[in-house]
């Protein structure tokens, strides 16, 4: 007890990890995955999640080996894998789960500026899987298939994470814009007969939007930190997503909205960071771009 550090209650590495944003996100996603799998039909989703996580660890571990990093365990890889597994239908073949996770993580390592990926890896991989494999997406990790009151659990978990990564302006802007545009669509009788604003405002679609807003949109490396940019990012992602929903419906509107937001953020960085623009390249550059003083993470969350 002579040591000053010993006066503080000892913290296990797990406790310390859970106090980090990434640790909190991972714990919440694991919790949501387990709760989502309580539904008997989604028990197999756990297998998908395990396969996705294993794939993520192997790929990110391999990249870490190539880059000669000391830390081989990738928490970001696990988070991306869990999101992929939570979104894909549990009926998705395992090879598709593995391929989706692999593409998601490879996009993180290749499509980047400096150390930071341009696109949300999970959204990129899921859109890829939708286009290439025509995968079904059930968003079962958003508890969309469970009794509606469990959405409160999703909300609580989401608010916790949003607070930890300091992304409230972004989430509020996204959800506010999304719901406002859906309301406008309803007033103006816009939208497809098969994909009405009424559908989007109800389970399971609303769960999907909440899940995306809380756990994908808030990914620090692929979203801005300054509040003004957060608000614009949320508005852009929601507007693009809603526009696609109104004109095409489908599964991908939320993902595309997010990816367009990521692209907007890249353009913003390029416009506001001339030295970085000239020094960095899109593919595999080792140049570190200092995004903003306020940026939170030193590594990818997802």
């Amino acid at each position: 007890m002579n040591n000053p550090q010993a006066t503080r209650p000892p913290q296990s590495p797990l406790e310390r990890f859970l106090k980090t944003p990434k640790g909190a996100v991972m714990a919440v996603l694991v919790g949501l995955t387990l709760v989502g799998a309580l539904r008997p039909q989604d028990h197999l989703g756990l297998l998908n999640a395990a396969v996705a996580v294993a794939t993520g660890l192997v790929i990110d571990g391999g990249v870490a080996l190539l880059q000669r990093r000391r830390k081989l365990f990738s928490d970001g890889g696990v988070i991306t894998a869990l999101i992929v597994a939570d979104v894909l239908s549990h009926m998705t073949p395992l090879y598709v789960v593995m391929a989706t996770t692999a593409v998601a993580l490879l996009s993180k390592h290749t499509l980047k500026v400096g150390r930071k990926p341009i696109f949300n890896p999970a959204a990129f991989g899921l859109l890829f899987a939708l286009v290439v494999f025509g995968t079904g997406q059930s968003w079962w990790g958003s508890l969309a298939l469970l009794p509606i009151w469990l959405t409160l659990l999703l909300l609580a978990a989401g608010l916790l994470i949003t607070s930890r990564v300091n992304k409230f302006p972004q989430v509020i802007a996204f959800l506010g814009t999304y719901f406002a545009l859906l309301l406008a669509m309803a007033f103006l009788h816009l939208g497809l007969p098969s994909d009405t604003p009424g559908d989007a405002l109800r389970a399971p679609f609303v769960n999907s939007a909440l899940y995306l807003a809380f756990f994908m949109l808030t990914d620090p490396p692929t979203s801005p930190a300054p509040y003004r940019q957060q608000i614009l990012f949320g508005v852009i992602a929601a507007s693009v997503g809603t526009m696609i929903f109104a004109t095409s419906g489908g599964l991908a509107y939320l993902l595309i909205g997010l990816l367009v937001g990521n692209a907007w953020r890249l353009s913003l960085r390029w416009m506001t960071n001339v030295p970085a623009r000239s020094a960095s390249s899109l593919l595999g550059s080792a140049t570190t771009v200092i995004d903003a003083k306020n940026d939170i993470s030193d590594e990818n969350l997802a």
């Binding site: 939708l130 290439v132 025509g134 098969s194 095409s248 419906g249 489908g250 991908a252 595309i256």
Partner: peptide, 22 residues
């Protein structure tokens, strides 16, 4: 088209896959 028949939408991707039949 999808607007006319949801089940006819593309099953293989893009943003119109929601109700598409495989």
């Amino acid at each position: 088209g999808q607007g006319a028949s949801p089940s006819a939408s593309s099953a293989s991707g893009s943003s119109s896959g929601k109700h598409g039949t495989s």
